[in-house]
Design a protein around this nucleic acid. Structure first.
Length: 250
DNA sequence: GACTGATCATAG
DNA sequence: CTATGATCAGTC
């Protein structure tokens, strides 16, 4: 399939596949279903990439280079709550001097994102997961400020040789967590004396709480607890993201 | 149930 | 071997 020529065309394609299951989508493309779910990490993302015509699967840079858009599938519960954090990009561990937010990989990756929720099915398996309404998103000034503050804190610590002090607990929107084939992998990084040392490779992730707020803001607020004002709750996020996309704002 | 640290598949 | 795609699974 050729790459979409515009944001509108990409969004149209994403809306067209919304409402179906991942298994149905794979069938329609003539692609096999994976066996063991534990060995199918990444399958949903690659399937949706193919379905939407991403031209350069597996290559560096945005999924849709001509449009500057990054595609992210995000697993959500029927209530619309993301089940996982979202992978962003690898963290630089060496040569950080002069690195600035404006030229960072995190900012570039998150500048324009097409979120495609995959909603849990009843049987818990990935095949029954349904594609939800897509959301074409750019960070609001407030969202970007939060991400930037986290990023700058992490980068400063890495540059000062303190990567070993960073855990997944840090960060409001962004996390720095291991990103490697296993815990024995090592990359060069700076130590506290400015020399070189080895550490486990890390990557940036968006917290589920951050993506939950992002989805809620665009698809509607989460239903208030019982006792809330009548008529103000509206649909749950799950109802919205589970929809085909024809009724959603945006 | 949420969260963190660890891990798995594929393309090039 | 690296980069991209994420989810697993044990712990809190």
């Amino acid at each position: 399939m050729r790459a979409p020529a515009s944001e509108a065309e990409l969004l149209g394609r994403a809306r067209a596949i919304a409402g179906g299951t991942l298994a149905e989508l794979a069938d329609s493309l003539g692609l096999p279903l994976p066996g063991d779910p534990r060995r199918a990490k990444g399958w949903a993302g690659q399937l949706v990439e193919t379905a939407l015509g991403a031209p350069s699967a597996g290559e560096p840079g945005p999924d849709f280079p001509g449009l500057g858009i990054e595609l992210k599938t995000i697993p959500v519960t029927p209530a619309g709550r993301p089940r996982e954090s979202t992978w962003v990009c690898i963290a630089p561990m060496e040569d950080l001097t002069g690195l600035h937010w404006e030229r960072s990989l995190v900012r570039a990756k998150l500048a324009r994102v097409l979120w495609v929720p995959t909603v849990d099915g009843t049987d818990g398996g990935f095949q029954s997961r349904r594609i939800g309404a897509p959301l074409l998103w750019s960070p609001s000034p407030e969202e970007e400020a939060v991400i930037r503050a986290d990023w700058e804190e992490f980068i400063e610590d890495i540059a000062l040789g303190r990567i070993h002090t960073i855990t997944g607990r840090r960060g409001t929107a962004l996390q720095l967590r291991p990103k490697a084939a296993n815990a024995r992998e090592r990359n060069w990084t700076t130590d506290e004396d400015g020399g070189r040392t080895l550490a486990n490779p890390r990557g940036f992730y968006l917290r589920a709480s951050f993506t939950a707020a992002l989805l809620a803001r665009h698809f509607g607020a989460l239903r208030p607890a019982a006792g809330g004002p009548p008529g103000t709750g509206g649909e749950t996020v799950g109802a919205r993201v589970s929809a085909t996309g024809r009724d959603t704002p945006g």
